[in-house]
């Protein structure tokens, strides 16, 4: 395959692939929403002085840290039926929602820990320190977008899944490498953009706190 041929194919399939990227973002955002709500609840439980709530919140958070998202994808896909029955009402559970739930578990574990710190800052009146939760949250969103590519294994039509379809359609062995590399570049561009925005946000917070908070590198600790 010549470079011209490869480029032609990649350009032709770009709209199709990018539609898949919206799926990555949609699945990840849904996971962030679910995880944040659950995580905040857990943080409130852990911050309360009620004994049962406190230990319950701790145990649940620990379990969420241990559960691997890749395994949870399969777990939820097999364990949640496609049609859920509620009081005679039948609700369809799409596969992308199961993926969001799987990633949401990791998000909840993360939010539970970080929101707890913020809640305590807030209680002491340190509003700006509490707001530092936002850049970490965005950072975690980035991690979940990277993880969302694994939703392809349960059939969510996101970008990596579509890359396989494109490779099947073009059907040339030399094209496989370039197709995956091209998709990877889109992920990279997205990451860089988001990281830059995150730094700006963080720096503004730093200035507001007069450098009270130590500068620490944004941490991408690998997908959960």
């Amino acid at each position: 395959m010549t470079i011209a041929e490869i480029t032609k194919h990649l350009v032709a399939w770009t709209p199709y692939l990018l539609t898949g990227f919206w799926w990555n973002i949609a699945v990840s955002l849904t996971a962030m929403v679910i995880g944040t709500v659950v995580g905040l609840l857990l943080a409130v439980m852990r911050d309360s002085s009620v004994w049962g709530a406190k230990s319950g919140g701790n145990v649940l958070t620990a379990a969420m840290h241990v559960a691997p998202t890749f395994v949870m994808l399969f777990y939820l896909t097999y364990m949640i039926p496609e049609q859920l029955e509620f009081f005679g009402l039948s609700v369809h559970v799409p596969v992308w929602l199961k993926a969001s739930l799987a990633f949401g578990i990791a998000v909840a574990g993360f939010v539970s820990d970080n929101a707890l710190v913020s809640i305590r800052h807030f209680a002491k009146g340190h509003v700006l320190e509490a707001l530092l939760f936002l850049p970490s949250w965005t950072n975690y969103f980035l991690i979940i977008v990277m993880a969302s590519s694994t939703a392809s294994v349960i059939g969510v039509p996101e970008m990596v899944y579509r890359a396989r379809t494109v490779i099947g359609a073009v059907d040339q062995i030399g094209f496989v490498f370039w197709a995956y590399l091209y998709v990877m570049i889109w992920f990279l561009v997205f990451s860089i953009l988001l990281t830059v925005i995150m730094h700006l946000l963080r720096n503004r917070l730093m200035q507001r706190t007069n450098g009270l908070l130590g500068q620490d590198e944004t941490d991408l600790g690998g997908i959960p």
């Binding site: 990277m146 694994t150 062995i173 496989v176 490498f177 990279l188």
Partner: peptide
């Protein structure tokens, strides 16, 4: 930075399927 900012699943595919084809040749 590149490794940390791209999905590991894609890294696996690129090496195993992408480079795999070249190596196979």
């Amino acid at each position: 930075a590149v490794l940390r900012m791209t999905p590991p699943l894609l890294q696996l595919y690129i090496v195993f399927l992408g480079l795999g084809g070249v190596v196979l040749a």
